[in-house]
Design a protein around this nucleic acid. Structure first.
Length: 590
RNA sequence: GGCCCCGUAGCUCAGGGGAUAGAGCGACCGCCUCCUAAGCGGUAGGUCUCAGGUUCGAAUCCUGACGGGGCCGCCA
């Protein structure tokens, strides 16, 4: 069982940063630097140009001004101290005051050893300090199957949740079911027509109802349950029952769709339950008590005035008090709640459940909704719980390089199931995570299935498969290559720069996890994995010309084991990274 | 009219205060007697949309243009 405590988990970059901070503290103790300096901006990172060294720190430049000293002078003094560190070979001042560090081969070998010892936990961070985070995502209306846009939201939300978990947060994946608005009444009426159809009558799929075939089995199920007892009854007799039944069926379908993608929610919250329990009124009254609810009229929107605009008094939330541009209506003119009102209650509910942070993953068309949500969470948590809204941009589908037109009407509506059945869950997930959430994504059915290096999924999978292949080959050659044996290998046999270079890339993994988690950017994992795979493929091919660089060295067990340990460490990181993205690592390519 | 996102190589995109701005594709030149060549190495290709500002330092932060997308009370 790998140890998960901070002291033993390897993160070479934060370790060296610690050494830099220690050296700076010692300089302060000696009076070489003034006390009370803010070290927050002192960074230790890989230099852009590897020729500069293994790691670089900007400490001298950051501290020069507050310390009232020349950057190069600080850097020189820091260099002298760091040179005494056994892990550091050279510390050279360069450029405007960078301090470039070169580490011993043993430092990099130590990273390989740690990756093997820590296994799937290598790179796990305690940065999140166990803070409870609620990630709400998908939340598709229970009125039909999930479409491509939902797919991206599902993949992003799930990967973000996994990433935050890996970075030390306690994560809850949550789905908010919009089962209370007018759209579920429409669903009920649509299902009722299918129920009539199931009973041999002609369905009347009027304008405004959902025409999709997916409701036909729901009609059948209604018949099985109610027989003919609902026929020729007024809507008021059956609406509530049919609605409950149909939304239940839709949610089952959505759960099945999510399962296809490998997404599992921890909690499903129901708008209907929140509304029925009186929590909306409670939330509004709480806001009223804060002076944030009032009767008023809104200014008409500037520019093009809607045709049917009329001034109207309604119940408003003073979201401008918490950073919004205008106040927002919580009640319609007929006195019923707007969609926003139950959302207020729902977010308050999440706050009360004790999360330290809320994240909503929403479609980009909800951009105009963000400020009021933040305002409400700010108001109801007294500013103590940050709400982050991640907007997911459009997915543009292509087939044969041609845009794929989608239209509900024409029946060319692409569902999550369509995508996953054609591309497979692994490809779907990886491709949808190769872009920032706030940038539009092109999804080309042909390109994503291509088996070449322009397809990042394939390329990363191939690297992992090669690692597995090496281990199989070792077995055939009679070289023990199980993890326990590899963990005990003498890594001193790794000395070629091409090998240490791969170890350097592996060393970046724990740092990358923290950067990605801090920015809530799972796409960084995907890009890193591509780079790591590239390093492995590069080293692999070096073995073509220089047989001494092949992983399996027939007849030399200790050297083989050291080299295979390096390959296996790479595989461990790829596997962990793919795990965060929700992609299964391939054992072999077939 | 307002708000949000985007603008980086021919194309698709990384990088989001730090040194000479990167990758893939496309183009060109090389590498299989060898652990999967489904791969690798190299060459060419940039006023980081523009203009100001902050900073020791700006593709990165701020302001304003311009271009593309999205949204803007009684839909959810």
């Amino acid at each position: 069982m790998p140890d998960r405590t901070k002291d033993t988990r390897m993160n070479l970059f934060s370790d060296i940063r610690g050494a830099v901070l220690d050296a700076l503290a010692a300089m302060q103790a000696e009076g070489a630097l003034p006390a009370g300096l803010d070290m927050a901006n002192v960074a230790v990172e890989p230099p852009r140009d590897p020729a500069h060294g293994d790691m670089a720190t900007n400490a001298a430049m950051v501290l020069a001004k507050p310390a009232g000293q020349q950057p190069r002078a600080i850097a020189e003094a820091l260099a002298a101290r760091l040179a005494a560190d056994p892990r550091i070979v050279t510390a050279e001042v360069a450029g405007p005051g960078f301090l470039n560090l070169r580490l011993t081969p043993d430092a990099w070998r130590g990273v390989v050893a740690s990756a093997l010892a820590e296994g799937a936990d290598f790179g796990r961070s305690d940065m999140g300090q166990g803070v409870k985070v609620n990630v709400e995502f998908v939340s598709a209306n229970p009125t039909g199957p999930m479409h491509v846009g939902h797919t991206r939201g599902a993949v992003f939300g799930d990967a973000l949740a996994a990433l935050l978990d890996f970075a030390g947060h306690e994560v809850t994946r949550e789905y908010y079911i919009n089962d209370a608005g007018a759209q579920v009444d429409v669903l009920a009426r649509s299902a009722y027509e299918r129920y009539r159809e199931a009973n041999g009558l002609d369905p009347e799929i009027r304008e405004g109802l959902y025409p999709g075939d997916y409701l036909i089995p729901v009609g059948e199920a209604l018949k099985a349950r109610y027989g003919t007892s609902l026929l020729d009854k007024p809507e008021s007799d059956w609406l509530a029952d049919v609605r409950a039944f149909a939304t239940g069926e839709m949610m089952q379908m959505i759960r099945d769709d999510l399962a296809l993608l490998g997404v599992r929610m921890d909690i499903f919250s129901s708008e209907r339950e929140i509304t029925a329990s009186g929590r909306v009124e409670e939330a509004i009254e709480t806001l009223r008590g804060m002076g944030l609810i009032y009767e008023g009229t809104l200014e008409p929107p500037k520019g093009k005035l809607p045709e049917d605009w009329e001034e109207r008094e309604q119940l408003l939330f003073r979201s401008t008090a918490h950073g919004d541009d205008v106040d927002r209506p919580v009640q319609k003119s007929d006195g019923s709640w707007t969609y926003f009102a139950p959302d207020i209650a729902y977010h308050w509910d999440k706050v009360k459940r004790g999360y330290g942070q809320l994240i909503d993953v929403l479609g980009a068309d909800h951009g105009g909704y963000v400020k009021r949500l933040k305002a409400v969470v700010s108001a109801l948590s007294d500013g103590s719980v940050p709400l982050e809204v991640k907007l997911i941009q459009l997915v543009k589908l292509y087939k044969n390089g041609e845009p794929f037109k989608m239209s509900k009407r024409a029946g060319t509506f692409v569902t999550l199931r369509d995508v996953v059945e054609q591309a497979g869950p692994d490809v779907t997930r990886f491709v949808m995570l190769t872009r920032k959430n706030d940038a539009a994504l092109d999804f080309d059915f042909d390109k994503v299935l291509e088996q070449s290096k322009d397809n990042p999924v394939f390329y990363v999978q191939y690297a992992h498969a090669r690692v597995c292949s090496v281990i199989r080959k070792a077995g055939e050659a009679g070289i023990a290559a199980d993890d326990a044996t590899l963990a005990g290998a003498d890594l001193g046999h790794l000395s070629h720069d091409a090998e240490l270079s791969l170890a350097r890339k592996i060393a970046e993994w724990p740092r990358l996890v923290e950067i990605a988690a801090r920015g809530q950017e799972p796409h960084r994992i995907a890009f890193y994995l591509y780079e790591l795979a590239s390093e492995l493929h590069g080293l692999w091919n070096r073995g073509n010309e220089d047989t001494g660089l092949r992983f399996v060295q027939e007849g030399n067990v200790p050297v083989s084991q050291a080299k295979i340990a390096l390959a296996r460490a790479t595989g461990v990181v790829i596997s962990a990274g793919l795990g965060i993205l929700g992609v299964t690592p391939a054992e072999e390519m077939r």
